[in-house]
């Protein structure tokens, strides 16, 4: 159940109950809990990957543990827990996963990547502007013009605060611009 420790944002309805667990009031539940099925499979796969990687490392002995010893134990534990979740998922009815923020992922996740790819080449100013602009389109409510204005204002603010105010060692305009 998704009970977050931090940053609970807008709660979809007016009860904490909704915040604490996805209410199972949706009718089309199947015999298999698909959420847990996927969860179990992913955990087992992740465990397998880590176990394989640890095995490539030197395992060592209990007295002098090698780099692979502890991670190997952990991977086995992860696979075990994944398997338990997998088995459990086949016995109970599940709740559907709900809407997925495809548009959000499409525009939010690339923002830090774009910043990372361009901050050293283009420099801090253009880089932060482009990243903010891309992130702005994650919401369908954002109009192109307001996105431009917001990104420009945000860039100006960030440059003033982080670059001039706090003196963080960012190059404002990078070598790619030939300035």
């Amino acid at each position: 159940m998704a009970f977050r420790l931090e940053g609970v944002g807008p709660v979809p309805s007016d009860t904490v109950a909704t915040l604490l667990h996805f209410n199972g009031d949706i009718m089309n539940s199947s015999k298999v809990d698909t959420t847990n099925l996927i969860c179990g499979l992913l955990l087992v796969a992740t465990g397998l990957w880590f176990a394989y990687q640890s095995f490539e490392l030197e395992l060592g002995t209990a007295l002098r543990m090698g780099p692979g010893y502890f991670p190997f134990i952990l991977s086995c534990a992860l696979m075990l827990f994944g398997a338990i979740i997998l088995v459990q998922s086949l016995r109970v009815e599940g709740e559907p996963m709900g809407a997925i923020a495809w548009r959000g992922m499409l525009f939010i996740l690339p923002a830090p990547i774009i910043f990372g790819l361009t901050v050293q080449g283009l420099g801090f100013v253009p880089s932060i502007f482009i990243s903010a602009l891309v992130a702005a389109f994650a919401s369908h409510k954002m109009k192109p013009l307001s996105a431009l204005i917001l990104s420009a204002a945000l860039t100006a603010f960030s440059v003033l605060v982080f670059s001039y105010g706090l003196g963080l060692p960012f190059q404002r305009f990078g070598p790619w611009l030939g300035l």
Partner: peptide, 25 residues
């Protein structure tokens, strides 16, 4: 929808400033 571009920008700056390592982004 005005907030999260701001949050994204500050997060990126914050993370990058820790080690100046773009791989952190």
């Amino acid at each position: 929808y005005i907030l999260f571009p701001i949050i994204m920008a500050f997060c990126s700056i914050g993370v990058y400033s820790v080690n100046s390592n773009v791989y952190d982004l």
